[in-house]
Amino acid sequence: MSMDRRQFLKYSGIASILGFGASVASATNLITGKQLLPPQVDMNKEALRAKRWAMVVDMSKFRTDEDFQRTISACHTIHNVPDFRKPDGSVDKKFEIKWIWKAAYERSFPGQENPYMSEHVKDMPFMVLCNHCTNPPCVRVCPTKATYKLADGITMQDMHRCIGCRFCMAACPYGARSFNWVDPRRASNLDPAKGGKVNNEYPTRTKGVVEKCTFCTERLAVGKMPACVEAAPKGALLFGDLEDPNSEVRKIVSNKLTIRRKPDLGTGPAVYYLIGGGEHA
C-alpha cells in the first residue's frame, strides 16, 4: 500500500484523536467509575476538634527533673521514638530522635537573656517541642509536600512521602526535626532482641525519613489529649483551641505575659511559655 503525504497526515490525525478520546474515556472511568468510591468520611464523635491547636507551657509547674523525664518518656514511648545509647549509656547525639526535649534558656530564647537575670531562669531547662507554626518554614521548603499544615493548625508529615532530603531540618529554626540515620527498630528501646518493646498501636518510622512531634493527631482523633499533656504535672502543659475565646490556653495567652520562641522570625509559633510563677487564669 502506498500512501501520499496528504493521506498520511489525515490518518495520523484521526489516529491521534481516537487515542486522545480513549485516554480521556479511561481517565474519566478511573475517576467516576464504580471501581473505587471516594471514601465516605465519618469523623469520630469523640474526636477533639479545634480551629487552631496551641499549647501553653507553664514553666513554674515543672519542678523536678523527674517531671521532665516523665513527660518526655510518655511521648516517646507512645510514638515508638528510638532511644539510641552509646555503650556507656549516654545518649548517642548522632542518632538522637526527639519529639519533645529539654533545652536551656539561652538556647530556647536566644537574644532574650541578660547578664543579671535570675539564676533560676538561667539554669532552668525548658520543655521544647515542635511549635506547629502558622507560617512554617519546613512546609515551605519540602519538595514533596511530605510536610504540610492540617486545617486545625497542626504541622503534620506524611512518612510515605518523605524522601529524607532534610531541607525541613535546615529550615526549622527550632531544631524540632530529627532524621533517622539508621533503622529506628534497631534502638535498644524498640528492638525486642535488646529487651525493647514497641507500641503496637503506632507505627515506627523507617531509615531515611525525618520526624517530629505531631501534637498527637492520632490521640485527638479518639478524644484524648496529647500524651505529654497527660503525663506532665497538672497544669504544666495546657492544650486547647487558640481561636476559642473560652479555652484555657486562650485565656492565659490573652491575660498573662507569655513568650514564644523566636517570634521575630515570623513563623508564628503556637507554643506559648509562661515563665513566671504563681496561679493563672
Binding site: 471516594p38 465516605q40 468520611v41 465519618d42 469523623m43
Partner: peptide, 18 residues
C-alpha cells in the same frame, strides 16, 4: 492508598462501607 491519604493528609479516620 486512599485510606492512607485520607488519614494522614485530611485527618479523616472513619470509613463507611458501601
Amino acid at each position: 492508598n486512599q485510606w492512607r491519604d485520607s488519614v494522614v493528609r485530611d485527618d479523616n479516620r472513619g470509613y463507611v462501607s458501601t
